[in-house]
């Protein structure tokens, strides 16, 4: 009962956060210099002088900012993210077409990160200050320091070009086809590496800390095998702080996807975002930013729920 109440509460508190994200997104975009009209005029010198005034009027760019915001929000509630002026498509068609690709990439990177980080962190903590720990520390440090565009290029050069194990180009066979998933591996690994390294350090630290607690000695004193002590008693307690970081890293996965998508020519939102910035396509930009904001909020919501599942004390606070 208290768990359901807790989740409901978390979901409700996410709503004002999302609203805040939309205000901030809108405000930042409008504070940036230049708009789509000046961009269009600059690209095309033959536009007559009066035309830009007329276009601004037509796009509603002369209205007060709060009117523009309300117009925009009204559109969002009806599923209309506004026009993309430089092409005939609307922002929502582009977003909807590209979103699954980016979600797939992000999810793969995230799962990859967790699959490496959790066992790696456990291993490092259990073998603290031994060779295995040093190796993992070195690996983590490298993972954090290597820029992902470089890692992406290297992986592509070695595994796709030299060894010819992976395709270099979009096989264009549909999202969940075997070819597409195979192609997904390199960009997915690239995007997950840094996140994995971060999470692994947190996992190690938090597990090493938990291992010093008395309940661990108590569990051993019961005669439980070391495996049970680690994987049942210590792991669940250690995962609490990893959950925080995992949620937090969603944001970095999203921003990392921009670079990785460009490097691998992955047909996702990141590439669209780069184009939208270049063309000052404010509606598309805001749609993408709002969406990524929503993803981060959702990730934090999930983290809150996972906390409550892991730790009964958190559930009971509400």
């Amino acid at each position: 009962m208290s768990l359901q109440k807790y989740i409901l509460r978390r979901v409700l508190t996410s709503i004002p956060v999302l609203f805040g994200v939309s205000v901030v997104t809108f405000g930042i975009m409008h504070a940036a210099p230049g708009d789509v009209v000046s961009q269009m005029v600059a690209a095309n010198p033959n536009v007559p002088p009066g035309e830009s005034v007329r276009l601004r009027e037509e796009f509603g760019l002369n209205d007060p900012i709060w009117v523009q915001y309300l117009d925009w929000m009204q559109g969002i509630f009806t599923g209309d993210f506004g026009e993309v002026y430089s092409s005939s498509r609307s922002a929502d068609t582009i977003v909807m077409a590209r979103l699954p690709e980016t979600l797939l990439l992000g999810a793969f990177g995230w799962v990859f990160a967790i699959l490496i980080a959790v066992p790696g962190g456990i291993y490092a903590a259990v073998n603290k200050d031994e060779l295995g720990d040093d190796v993992s520390r070195f690996a983590a440090l490298s993972g954090i320091s290597i820029p992902n565009f470089w890692l992406g290029l290297m992986l592509m050069a070695i595994f796709a070009v030299q060894l010819d194990l992976f395709p270099t180009l979009d096989p264009q066979t549909g999202l969940l086809s075997r070819e597409m998933l195979w192609w997904l591996i390199l960009p997915g690994v690239t995007i997950g590496t840094a996140a994995s390294a971060n999470m692994m350090r947190i996992m190690r630290t938090s597990m090493a800390e938990e291992l010093n607690k008395e309940y661990v000695t108590a569990a051993r004193a019961k005669g439980l095998p070391e495996r049970t002590v680690i994987l049942k008693h210590v792991l669940r307690n250690s995962l609490i702080s990893v959950t925080t970081v995992a949620a937090f890293l969603t944001a970095s996965l999203v921003s990392g996807s921009v670079v990785v998508e460009v490097v691998f020519a992955w047909p996702g939102l990141g590439r669209e975002l780069v184009e939208a910035i270049q063309l000052r396509e404010i509606n598309l930009l805001m749609a993408i930013t709002l969406l990524t904001g929503a993803v981060v909020v959702l990730a934090n919501l999930l983290a809150d729920i996972v906390y409550a599942l892991l730790d009964p004390r958190i559930r009971d606070e509400y």
């Binding site: 607690k213 008395e214 309940y215 108590a218 569990a219 008693h233 669940r236 307690n237 892991l310 730790d311």
Partner: peptide, 10 residues
């Protein structure tokens, strides 16, 4: 100290 000897999450 029973409080620390008990695992809080089970």
């Amino acid at each position: 100290d029973a409080q620390t000897a008990l695992n809080p999450v089970y």
